[in-house]
Simulated assay, not measured.
Amino acid sequence: MRPVEVTSVPLFWRIFVLNAVVLCAATALLLWAPVTVSVPVLFTEAVVLVVGLAVMLVANAVLLQLGLAPLDRLTRQMATVDLLRPGQRLPVAGQGGVTRLIRAFNEMLARLEAERAASNSRALSAQEAERRRISQELHDEVGQSLTAVLMELKRAADRVDDPVLRADLNQAQETTRASLDDVRRLARRLRPGVLDDLGLVSALTSLATEISTHAGLPVHHEFQPGLPALDQQTELVFYRVAQEGLTNVARHAEATQVELRLSHDGERVVLRIEDDGRGLGLAEEGDGVRGMRERALLVGGSLDLKSGSGRGTVVTLSVRIDQEGGLTWRGPEKA
């Protein structure tokens, strides 16, 4: 005959049996132990009764703690679960009521993670499409208009004889040229054409140069040769994470330098951003970091942040690849 597992017993009967064991033990003690109660109660008898009651209460508390431990674990997991760190599951054993509850909770987490991933994918795809449209309009319309204005200012400056007016027109040309450069830079940030034309390494090199030039922050970059072929979406995820990470360093880290590395080991492609700034400290993750985590999940990757106060921050994006060197979708990785 197969023994009944403890975890297969419903929670009600488990609590009932635990309390029954305690009460039966107390009854047996009163029936067979050479203990009597006088009237009035003697001090020694009162001590025996109090000790016996304490023993029963402690035994009952311990047994209930053991019986309700799975529910405590479930409660803690529900309070701390984060869908941006997928794979958080409780162990399942047996067939009891608590086990069925835990299994249902794990299945609910899996559905929520899948639905969130699908929703994020649609939202980020729409966002990239809108960025592409705005970038194209900035380049084709605003950029061309500023170029035409720049040419008209040059022709006007060449025709006038007044040196003061010519100086004013030349100043207007410089202002227009600076505005045109800003528009082109914004268009590149919205949709990096170099990523589509020349690939990830060239796009990251251009990004590092741009951050160094405009933020005055030295960006040392190192890219391991022989990078496996990645699809367009994965390259875009690597680029956006690098862009957000470097922008955060330039704006908030108070760093003097930052290192950007891209490497692979045959199983994973890893992007690493490390600065020497003030670190994250006790600050909560903002929308930028959560956006990076959402992008990482789109390609089955994992994003890790490590920081200590005054010791800088390290952002690591890791994406698994298959044995042939291409990207493989394996679902969200376990935390």
Rank of each mutant, 00 (worst) to 15 (best):
G245E: 13
A229G: 15
Q224Y: 06
L262G: 01
P228I: 09
V269W: 00
A253V: 02
N248H: 11
Q233D: 15
D231L: 10
R272F: 08
N248Q: 07
A255D: 01
A229E: 13
V237P: 01
A255L: 12
L260Q: 08
E259V: 05
L260D: 09
E259S: 12
Q257E: 13
T247P: 00
A242V: 07
R261M: 00
L236D: 14
L230F: 11
E244C: 07
L227Y: 11
L271N: 02
F238H: 11
H264G: 00
R268T: 15
V237D: 10
E244M: 12
A250V: 04
N248Y: 03
Q243P: 01
G226W: 13
N248W: 00
Q224D: 02
V249A: 13
Q243T: 07
L236A: 15
Y239E: 04
L262P: 00
R261N: 04
P228H: 12
V258N: 04
T256W: 00
R261H: 05
E259D: 09
L230I: 13
R261S: 00
E244N: 14
G245F: 12
V249L: 02
D265N: 08
R272P: 06
G266Y: 03
L236I: 12
L260Y: 05
D265H: 02
V269E: 03
G266F: 04
Q233H: 15
A229K: 06
L246S: 07
G245M: 09
V249F: 01
V241A: 02
T256G: 05
A255Q: 05
Q224K: 11
D231T: 12
S263G: 05
E267C: 03
V270M: 09
Q243I: 07
R251G: 04
L236S: 15
L271W: 13
H252F: 12
E254S: 07
A255V: 00
T234L: 12
A229F: 07
L230Q: 11
R272Q: 12
E254P: 02
R251K: 15
R251C: 01
G245H: 10
E254W: 05
S263T: 08
Q233A: 15
L227S: 14
N248G: 13
T256R: 11
E244L: 11
Q257M: 09
